[in-house]
């Protein structure tokens, strides 16, 4: 891990060999409850068996990512777009896409030209 000062030299010194030998899943700090919470956020209904499988797998991947987590990159800007563009826009001119029927015909359930869903419990956030 970096020696704290975050310099390029420290970063370089901290780097480990690429693709270090991998000896299978290890338990990391990620808990089964955390995995269950994340599944709820992602709206996935994981079975007990899946939770048992996913927890160590995700922990292993996160453990592998620990080197990135540990880097001191306070002064490094983030790259969200590899090719820097700005102010990309289009003129405010309407156009009919003409896809309404094709989409509604394929909807899992439609009624009165709208998408029909089971009762929605709770308001939007």
């Amino acid at each position: 891990m970096p020696a704290g000062d975050g310099s390029e030299a420290a970063l370089l010194a901290a780097r480990r060999p690429l693709a270090r030998p991998y000896d299978g899943p290890r338990m990391a700090s990620l808990s089964r409850d955390e995995v269950a919470h994340v599944a709820r956020l992602a709206r996935l209904q994981l079975s007990e068996e899946q939770l048992d499988t996913f927890t160590p797998q995700l922990a292993a991947i996160l453990e592998h990512a620990a080197d990135v987590e540990a880097l001191d990159l306070a002064d490094v800007p983030a790259t969200s777009h590899p090719y820097p563009l700005k102010n990309v826009w289009r003129p405010d001119v309407p156009r009919d896409a003409g896809i309404r029927e094709a989409v509604l015909d394929q909807a899992p359930d439609a009624e009165a030209g709208m998408f029909r869903v089971p009762p929605v419990l709770g308001e939007a956030p």
């Binding site: 309407p94 896809i99 030209g113």
Partner: peptide, 28 residues
């Protein structure tokens, strides 16, 4: 505006349901 924020569908009120939709604003 005349159109929606991210697509060319009309920004208008009171049309037939889903008349002003396209792949982008339907999230296709």
């Amino acid at each position: 505006t005349e159109t929606k924020l991210f697509c060319c569908c009309p920004n208008s009120f009171g049309d037939q349901p889903n008349a002003n939709t396209c792949p982008t604003c339907l999230g296709l």
